[in-house]
Amino acid sequence: MSDDHGLVEMEPTPGEKLAAIFKQREVRVATAWGVLVTAIFFVIGGWIYPSWMPTAMSTDMKSIERLIVIFTWISAPVCGIVLGFSIYTFLHRHKGDTPPADGPGFRTNSLVVGLWVIVSSALCLVAVVYGLIEMNSASAATAEHKKNAMVVEVTGSQWAWSFNYPEQGVQSHELMLPINRPVEFKIISVDVNHSFWPVQLGVKVDANRLQTTVIDTTPNKLGDIDVKCAELCGLYHAYMETSGKVMSADDFNTWVTAHQGGHTA
């Protein structure tokens, strides 16, 4: 971006123009700010962000965590560019009650605009492709799960969840799952829309009236699960939550035995 842009007789190559841009001191200082900002966002993305999220208890949740970290890293340079240049100009602000003198009169710079479009499109493409790959591997896993998945029928009603295990003949208000066995949730609502969200498992889908929705996952870590409703469903939406557990196969069998035959204490 130079004042005499367009007045040069011999048109330099885009590469030379780019090099000329980076020779300017102000561009270098702004870039330095940008690098600092980028580094900060790298740290947030890599360490702070995941620490806020609950323990991942399935591969789905693990890949969401990874995806959020990578997306933060992809966007860190974007933040770097925008904030680096913002900070630079902010530090060179004009104070006082009268307007500053006119600045340079350049109106555009096709190289910068072109580069900007190419880079932002490329970053967008990376995000799209990465998301599609993740989606694809999730649906591949679904196909695999179908073979030996345990079915859990989830019923959303205003304002409580209930679970039916057809294979085991057990009903419960808590979501109990054996570790490392694929589970297929079949979700239905008996009234308004709800959204079934076992938080630590990283899956979610709405419960609709008369339309069964299906999601699957494989719990791979022992511990407690919070089951929440993520779709406003009326008076006690906030209380439409229940707890659950991922347990060892033996513990799960014990629990099943204890709850078979309608005994649900």
């Binding site: 019923t155 009603s157 409580a160 209930s162 039916n164 009903q171 208000h173 309608g262 649900t264 204490a265």
Partner: peptide, 26 residues
């Protein structure tokens, strides 16, 4: 009931309740 699950007695001591003198589980 909209959701038949709530016909069950859950969370009581012994998993039962007493209706007019008779213990039931659901």
């Amino acid at each position: 009931l909209n959701a038949p699950f709530f016909g069950k007695v859950v969370g009581t001591v012994g998993g039962t309740m007493n209706v007019d003198g008779v213990d039931v589980t659901e």
